[in-house]
Computed example of a mutant assay.
Amino acid sequence: MTNQRISTLLAYLGLLPFFLGALMDYVGSSLPGLPSFIVFATYSAIILSFLGGALWGQVLPQAEHRVALLIVSNVVALLSWAGLLLIFLLGKVALVLLLLGYLLVVLFEVIHKETLSGVIEWKYLTLRSRVTAIVVALHAIVLLNQH
């Protein structure tokens, strides 16, 4: 199996915890001691941090000319951290921060697609845009379900 196929498969499999968390939140279910909102938001923060790190890794070899992308990768990590810190205090704000982080990553990937090291050939941005659209929609569903 090629890296492209594995990456595509992993990207779509990575949506399963988002769907599960959103479904649990929508039907009012939870894990023992963990509200579904917490399950959803913590997974979201971990994945968003992963994306920030991946962005850093793609740009680092060309960092001299890509300062904005390096800064964005750090902003994404900070949004993830803020989202985690705010989950218990301001749940809706945490979800909005996480949602904005996903939009920020895909926006910068699209704007700076020439910088991404060799991933464009296999339609990486199409995959990322599709997965991000689903993730953002699930965030909106969970956000709207909060009282």
Rank of each mutant, 00 (worst) to 15 (best):
I6K: 12
I6C: 01
A11E: 02
A11R: 00
A11K: 00
Y12L: 04
L13N: 09
L16R: 00
P17G: 07
P17D: 14
L20S: 13
G21S: 10
D25W: 06
Y26A: 13
V27W: 11
S30R: 10
S30N: 13
G33Q: 12
L34R: 07
P35D: 14
S36P: 03
S36Y: 05
F37P: 00
I38Y: 14
A41S: 13
A41T: 13
Y43K: 03
A45E: 07
I47K: 02
S49C: 08
G52D: 05
G52P: 06
A54V: 04
A54C: 11
A54I: 11
A54P: 03
L55R: 04
G57C: 01
V59P: 00
V59N: 01
L60V: 10
Q62W: 05
A63P: 03
A63S: 12
R66N: 10
V67I: 08
V67C: 02
A68L: 08
L69M: 05
L69Q: 04
L70I: 11
V75I: 11
L79D: 06
L85D: 12
L85I: 12
L86P: 08
L86W: 14
L86S: 12
I87S: 09
F88N: 09
L89E: 09
G91K: 10
K92Y: 12
L97R: 09
L97Y: 08
L97E: 07
L98T: 11
L99M: 15
L99T: 14
L99W: 04
Y102Q: 13
Y102N: 14
Y102F: 15
L103V: 13
L107K: 12
F108K: 00
E109D: 12
I111K: 13
K113N: 15
K113Q: 15
E114N: 14
S117C: 15
S117D: 15
S117N: 15
S117F: 15
G118E: 05
G118D: 04
V119D: 01
I120P: 00
V131S: 01
T132W: 05
